[in-house]
Design a binder for these strands. Structure first.
Length: 804
DNA sequence: TTTTACACGGTTTTT
DNA sequence: CCGTGTAAAA
């Protein structure tokens, strides 16, 4: 069995059926470091899961020897589901999860070594921000010079770079102050027993780095490490992987670590803005001395007109690892290009087109609208709404992030940890109890002076404010007693009642939705208990140990005695320490903010940003707002890396489509209350003509000497004009999409400038006008200066000379 | 303490 | 245009 070759396996194992040659190679790789370049729609997830199943089935590794890391909970869940469909294995016991989820698991198991309380709570971004705000107020830090948001960003970045306050090189006073705040923040978190997302990663990394026994244990244990979406890893995550794989240039390598299989696609790297480093892919190849790179280029998703367009577009990027998608499917339909006079009419056209598609029996959920920025969804939503077409928007507020849910969670957290000051302050006066800012200031001063938590400082306060806060604390203490041996569901119910949250919203005329959500929280608690099997078996780490024969029916199970599943927790004596259901639930809430889709219509048009479309696919895709300044976004135009990321974004968008792809752009667009004139995106020029079909007459290319890019109707320039057309909703009268654009006499702009015109600026030199905005004194122009990038200039201030 | 007014800023996002 | 957040008034 063990000596069986891959070829024989193919014949015998149904696992390997229907894999193409490259996929088969990837799945059956020997135990060595490897990089898989998996193009869009090339069956990446399938390869990853089949690889794990294959390793397990052939007894090359036990379930405990696998470490599989993803970025999103969704991806982790998908992997688990597919894996358990292939093999009778207890996937919940396996180390398959997100970076943060796995770090959490790791830190819980070794909380003592990590210097954390067993029940540490996790701060999400909101919590982190309010913690920083509180800290700044406490220490009289100028919120103007050091905005809390930026501080959060600064702290997060430091952690991603693996830098503690002492490690940050601060040359200027501003940075020194920031580092000081960073240190204060760290102290505060430590004191309150909370960690933010960055801390989960960094603390895990440091523990591995500094504790030889633990490091070597995990290096021995994880024989196969699989990383999904490798192009999205940041510096710290890569360092973490090196550490756990026993592969590093920092003297901590011992060669005994497992094999790393990195799966990624440099062309789909779209998260540089949040710290992702595509460079990790090349670093990985170098530092791990990777011998095998496998390219998965066979695309099973799209027809070739779509694929060729994507290939042509992305070929304009430099510094690629090099990859070209191909398909066995035919050319398919051409990519349709549409130019609208206004964003509103663009939406109108799109809705008309959708109606036709729906008439042709395309399911609504197979139609997706992609846009670069969220602001664009508004017009589309209203148009769809008016047409009574069901739709759903991705990326709204998520369940555990809603205000009322966060309030409820804060109460629960205080029950668990009375020293959680963030949660304390959040709900001490909500619902209102007559505890004002003044009283809280006194309390905070007292706590600061004594160095204790707000909860512990309460007894020192006197007078009416003191009594009120003491009352609040007493109430919670009673509630803590009451809930001590209750089920999670009962705890939540009791809390909702005793805190007065439910009553508060019952008295609120508009509180119905909130009550509904709070009810949903009770349900969530109940189903969480069911899912995790609390009350029957020991939770958390113990669950891991309770699955020695996970592969019960597998022929390989005989080879699994002395399984790493058992070894891990036992060796460190952590199995006895388990999280209470409430603690586990709170962790779950922080780590999985829940569904971020709007209420699920059964069959609805899908609306989302290009970013959130990654990993999804649809029969028909509309990519809207393909305009200069929007896509590529103006903020990304200044440097080449920015532009290349925009191009990858467009590549991701295009490769979402299976059968039919529409690209549309509009001459005018309402943005920030002003009508903007946009040129069509440069990306159009990078697509192969033979794959395209113009639904509107093609714009004239911009003459080399500057000049004028296309025409726009002045009639759409005013708000009222667009507004009127909008409210009539007279779809029949919008015959614009087949009719050629009216050639409107070009009115001389009062500023004397036109788009595409070359101008001269004393400082920036010669440039081209990209966008004109506003009028009179507010008039601004976006100008691209080849030497200095793209600038926004106020025309009333900047001295510009037109160049012929 | 709650309500109302004005200023400000506005890519992309997961954990 | 439109939501957020802080400052002033009821």
């Amino acid at each position: 069995m063990l000596s069986m070759s891959a070829a024989n396996d193919t014949a015998l194992s149904p696992l390997l059926h229907n894999l193409n040659p490259e996929q088969l190679v990837a799945v059956t790789l020997p135990a060595e470091h490897a990089l898989i370049l998996a193009g869009a729609g090339s069956g990446k997830t399938r390869v990853l899961t089949t690889r794990i199943a294959w390793l397990l089935q052939n007894g090359y590794v036990s379930p405990g020897g696998i470490l599989a890391v993803t970025f999103t909970n969704k991806a982790a869940k998908e992997m688990k589901t597919r894996l358990s469909a292939m093999l009778p294995v207890n996937v919940n016991g396996m180390w398959i999860g997100t970076f943060h989820g796995l770090c959490n698991r790791f830190l819980r198991a070794h909380y003592k070594n990590a210097g954390l309380p067993q029940a540490f709570q996790i701060l999400d971004t909101q919590d982190q921000l309010s913690a920083i705000k509180r800290l700044c107020k406490q220490h009289n830090i100028d919120g103007e010079r050091f905005p809390p948001k930026q501080m959060g960003w600064f702290i997060g970045n430091c952690k991603e770079e693996g830098l503690r306050p002492k490690d940050v090189v601060a040359s200027d006073p501003d940075t020194r102050k920031k580092v000081e705040i960073y240190q204060l923040y760290e102290d505060q978190c430590q004191r309150e027993g909370v960690v933010d997302f960055g801390e989960l990663m960094l603390r895990s990394y440091e523990l591995l780095r500094d504790n030889t026994a633990i490091r070597e244990h995990y290096q021995r244990r994880f024989r196969h490490i699989l990383i999904d979406e490798f192009q999205d890893t940041n510096k710290l995550q890569y360092a973490w992987i090196k550490m756990i794989a026993g592969q590093g240039s920092d003297g901590l390598l011992n060669g005994g670590g497992g094999s790393v299989l990195a799966v990624g696609d440099d062309d789909q790297s779209i998260y540089a803005f949040r710290g992702a480093r595509v460079g990790n892919m090349t670093d990985f190849v170098r530092e791990f001395a990777v011998q095998r790179q496998i390219k998965l280029e066979e695309n099973y998703r799209s027809y070739s007109n779509i694929l060729d367009s994507a290939n042509a577009l992305i070929s304009h990027n430099s510094r690629r690892l090099g990859k070209n998608l191909r398909t066995a499917q035919g050319a398919g339909e051409p990519v349709r290009v549409y130019e609208a006079p206004s964003d509103f009419l663009e939406a109108q056209w799109m809705v008309d087109e959708m109606k036709q598609l729906i008439r042709d029996d395309v399911e609504r959920k197979e139609i997706a609208v992609l846009y670069r920025s969220n602001a664009q969804s508004r017009v589309i939503e209203t148009t769809l709404f008016n047409a009574a077409i069901p739709y759903r928007v991705y990326g709204g507020q998520r369940f555990f992030e809603r205000k009322e849910i966060k309030d409820a969670l804060a109460y629960l957290r205080i029950l668990e940890n009375p020293n959680d000051d963030t949660s304390f302050l959040r709900v001490v006066n909500f619902p209102a109890r007559g505890i004002g800012a003044r009283s809280l200031e006194l309390l905070q001063d007292e706590a600061k002076a004594t160095g204790c938590s707000l909860h512990d400082a309460v007894s020192t306060l006197t007078g009416r404010p003191g009594a009120l806060i003491a009352g609040f604390v007493a109430k919670l203490d009673v509630l803590r007693e009451q809930t001590a041996d209750k089920t999670l569901k009962d705890i939540v119910t009791l809390m909702l009642d005793q805190s007065g949250l439910l009553e508060h919203y019952r008295n609120d005329r508009e509180g119905e939705d909130r009550i509904e959500n709070l009810d949903e929280l009770v349900n969530a608690a109940e189903s969480f208990v069911m899912q995790e099997g609390f009350g029957r078996e020991a939770p958390g780490m113990a669950q891991l140990a309770s699955a020695p024969n996970a592969l019960t029916q597998s022929p390989a199970s005989q080879g699994l005695s002395g399984d790493a599943l058992n070894a891990a927790p036992d060796e460190f004596g952590d199995t006895g320490e388990t999280l209470s259901p409430l603690q586990a639930f709170l962790t779950h809430a922080a780590l999985e903010a829940g569904d971020n889709m709007a209420a699920a219509g059964q069959d609805a048009i899908q609306l989302m940003t290009v970013h959130s479309s990654k990993g999804l696919e649809f029969d028909c895709v509309f990519i809207t707002g393909m305009e200069e300044g929007l896509f590529p976004h103006e903020n990304s135009l200044s440097d080449r890396d920015g532009l290349e990321e925009e191009r990858r974004l467009a590549y991701v968008a295009i490769t979402r489509a299976r059968k039919r792809l529409y690209l549309s752009h509009s001459q005018t667009r309402m943005l920030h209350g002003q009508t903007r004139f946009n040129l069509k995106s440069r990306f159009f020029d990078e697509l192969p003509e033979e794959c395209l079909k113009y639904l509107t007459p093609k714009q004239q290319p911009m003459p080399a000497g500057g000049g004028f890019g296309g025409s726009w109707g002045n009639g759409y320039a005013t708000n009222s004009g667009a507004g009127r057309a909008y409210s009539t909703g007279a779809t029949a009268s919008f015959g614009t999409y087949s009719a050629p654009q009216k050639e409107v006499a070009r009115k001389e702009d009062p500023t004397g400038l036109q788009k595409g015109q070359k101008v001269f600026h004393a400082k920036f030199g010669e440039g081209t006008v990209l966008t004109l905005e506003g009028a009179g004194d507010d008039a601004r122009a976006q100008i691209n200066f080849p030497r200095h990038g793209t600038k926004w200039l106020a025309l009333s201030v900047a001295k510009l000379t037109p160049v012929p």
